Amino acid sequence: LNLKQAKEEAIKELVDAGIAEKYIKLIANAKTVEGVWTLKDEILTFTV
Rank of each mutant, 00 (worst) to 15 (best):
T47E: 11
V15H: 11
T47K: 10
V33T: 06
V48I: 12
Y23W: 13
K4I: 09
K40C: 08
D16V: 10
T45F: 12
T45M: 14
E8L: 11
N2W: 08
G35K: 08
A6G: 01
G35A: 15
L14S: 00
A30S: 05
A28W: 14
E8W: 08
E42H: 13
E8R: 12
K22R: 10
E9L: 14
A10F: 02
Q5R: 11
L3D: 01
L39E: 01
V33A: 04
N2D: 13
E13M: 14
G18K: 06
K22M: 11
I43C: 02
K22T: 08
V33K: 03
K4W: 10
G35N: 10
W37H: 12
K22W: 12
T32K: 02
K7W: 04
L44M: 07
D16P: 01
A20C: 10
W37R: 13
K25C: 12
E8A: 13
E42C: 15
T32C: 03
I11E: 04
K25Y: 09
T47S: 11
E8K: 09
N29R: 09
E13P: 01
N29S: 11
D41T: 09
D41E: 13
T47H: 15
I24A: 05
Y23M: 05
A10Y: 01
L26A: 06
F46A: 13
E42K: 14
A28K: 10
K7F: 04
V48G: 13
K40M: 14
L3H: 01
D41N: 14
K31F: 06
K12Y: 03
A6R: 02
G18A: 04
Q5F: 07
K12S: 06
K31C: 11
W37D: 10
Q5L: 11
D41P: 00
V36L: 05
F46T: 12
G18E: 03
L44Q: 04
I27W: 00
G35L: 13
V36T: 03
T38G: 09
L44F: 07
T38L: 15
E21I: 09
T45S: 15
E42I: 14
A20G: 11
K12V: 04
D41W: 12
G18Q: 05
E21L: 09
E9Q: 15
A17M: 11
L44R: 03
L3R: 00
G18T: 02
K40G: 01
V48E: 10
T32H: 03
A10Q: 01
L39T: 06
L14A: 03
G18M: 05
G35D: 15
L44N: 03
K31M: 10
V36F: 03
N29C: 12
D16C: 12
E9M: 14
K7E: 01
I19K: 03
A6N: 02
A6M: 04
V15P: 01
A6H: 04
D41S: 09
E13Q: 13
A20S: 12
E13S: 07
A17Y: 09
I43Q: 00
A6V: 07
V15F: 07
L26C: 12
L1K: 10
A30R: 02
I24L: 10
T32F: 02
I43H: 01
L1C: 12
N29W: 08
L39A: 05
E21G: 07
I19N: 01
E13A: 13
G18Y: 03
Q5D: 07
V48M: 13
A10E: 00
D16G: 11
K4V: 11
L44A: 03
E21N: 08
K31W: 06
K7V: 07
L3N: 01
Q5K: 14
V36R: 00
L14D: 00
T45K: 15
I11K: 05
K31T: 13
T38V: 13
Y23H: 05
A6L: 05
N29A: 12
A6D: 01
T47C: 15
K22Q: 10
A30W: 02
E13Y: 07
V15I: 15
L26R: 06
G35F: 07
A20D: 14
T45G: 14
E21T: 09
L26H: 04
N2P: 10
K4A: 13
K7T: 03
K40W: 07
I27L: 07
K25G: 07
D41I: 13
F46G: 12
K40R: 13
E34N: 06
G35Y: 10
E42P: 00
K4F: 07
L39S: 03
N2Y: 10
K12A: 08
L26I: 06
V48H: 13
W37P: 00
Q5Y: 07
V36Y: 01
L1I: 12
G35Q: 15
N29Q: 11
W37N: 14
A20W: 04
E8Q: 11
I11S: 04
L44G: 02
K40N: 02
L44H: 03
E8M: 11
L14W: 01
E13V: 09
I11N: 02
E9H: 12
L44P: 01
V15E: 10
V33W: 03
N2F: 09
K25P: 03
N29I: 10
V15Y: 11
I24G: 03
T47N: 12
L26T: 04
N2G: 10
L44S: 03
I24S: 03
I27A: 01
L1F: 10
I11C: 06
V36K: 00
I11Y: 05
L26V: 05
A17L: 13
I19C: 10
L39N: 02
L1W: 06
L14N: 00
V36H: 02
K4T: 09
W37V: 09
I11F: 04
K22H: 14
A30Q: 08
G18R: 05
K25L: 11
E34I: 08
E34D: 09
D16H: 13
A10V: 07
G35S: 12
K12C: 06
A10R: 01
I19W: 04
T47Q: 12
E42Q: 13
T32Y: 03
A10L: 05
D41C: 13
I19A: 11
N29F: 12
D16T: 09
K22G: 07
D16A: 15
L3S: 01
E13K: 05
G35W: 10
Q5W: 08
I43W: 03
L1N: 12
A28Q: 14
A30C: 14
I19Y: 08
V33F: 05
L39P: 00
F46S: 13
L26K: 05
E13F: 10
I11Q: 04
E42M: 15
T47D: 08
I11G: 02
L14I: 03
K25E: 10
T38F: 14
E42S: 08
T32N: 05
A28I: 12
L3A: 02
T45Y: 12
Y23I: 04
E42Y: 15
A20P: 14
T38D: 08
G18C: 06
V33C: 05
L39M: 09
E8N: 08
D16E: 15
Q5C: 07
E8F: 07
V15M: 14
K12L: 06
Y23P: 00
